[in-house]
Nucleic acid binder design. Structure first.
Lengths: 143, 143
DNA sequence: ATTACTGCAAACCCTTTGCACGGTT
DNA sequence: AACCGTGCAAAGGGTTTGCAGTAAT
């Protein structure tokens, strides 16, 4: 599937297929998602020592540009990357206690946001919704 | 009104009234809102040279803690501050062409987000919704 | 043989922090 | 006189960039 497509996508556009890029793709695909650049870096290092963090950023940026990876800004300067999230609305719930990040979002929510943008003639390109709070587990645990 | 209240709020909680704090409040109140720390700093400098950026951050942080100012994360490491936004839902539309930031958001939107959080037993504390795209003016200007 | 990509190191931006002096109470 | 708040300077975290050598084509 996409495993096969990557080399073609890269070469087709004049980019090269490198171990670093293959590894980053693999890690993002395997993970449940929501990896920071540092997370990816750590995972890459485990299998290919010597890879620099700056390389990770460059690979991630390329993948985002190619539409292979989605980048989400969680605020406070934290950004996370996911491999091709197919669900249209993938907003984030960030637990302030355990740091966990989960998805939420419905078509209704997406439609409502789009409608409100349209009402003021704003053309949305990227919707970033992040809710900070307490997740189910931490709620029952601490209170 | 709030102009009067500031000294009381500060002194009442053991904080001091300083020219820097008064000036920051004044600037935030006068502005249409959405000022970055650097924006505030520049405006303060104009009237009180020598004020440090770190002071601005400290004053802003204090005001946020006192509930006088709202801080919003626009992503990409950009945070903006507004004086006491009374409207409950004050989400942001960020124009990628002119850099302008405007408000949007309805009770319905807030309610829907709250409902979706509740559905997964997530207790929201801070909702941050930022939509990047093209504003009305830039749409008609550029085509 | 090209030339894209990487490692390395430095720079960058926004923000935070330690410290001693000066201002507010 | 107490001590909070500021200026100053340095550090911090995440991210970006310049450069020369290396690897993919």
């Amino acid at each position: 599937m996409i495993d096969r497509a990557l080399p073609e996508v890269l070469r087709g556009r004049g980019y090269r297929v490198t171990p670093q890029r293959v590894l980053v793709r693999e890690i993002l695909q395997r993970s449940a998602g929501h990896l920071s650049a540092q997370d990816v870096h750590a995972a890459v290092q485990a299998r290919l020592p010597g890879v620099e963090l700056s390389t990770i950023y460059r690979v991630l940026e390329l993948f985002v540009r190619l539409g292979l990876v989605a980048k989400s800004d969680l605020g406070e300067g934290r950004a996370v990357y996911e491999w091709c999230p197919e669900h249209a609305a993938h907003h984030h719930l960030i637990c302030e206690h355990c740091g966990g990040v989960t998805h939420f979002g419905s078509p209704r929510l997406g439609a409502l946001i789009a409608a409100e943008c349209a009402a003021v003639h704003f053309e949305p390109r990227d919707v970033d919704l992040a809710v900070a709070g307490t997740c189910r587990q931490c709620r029952s645990a601490s209170g």
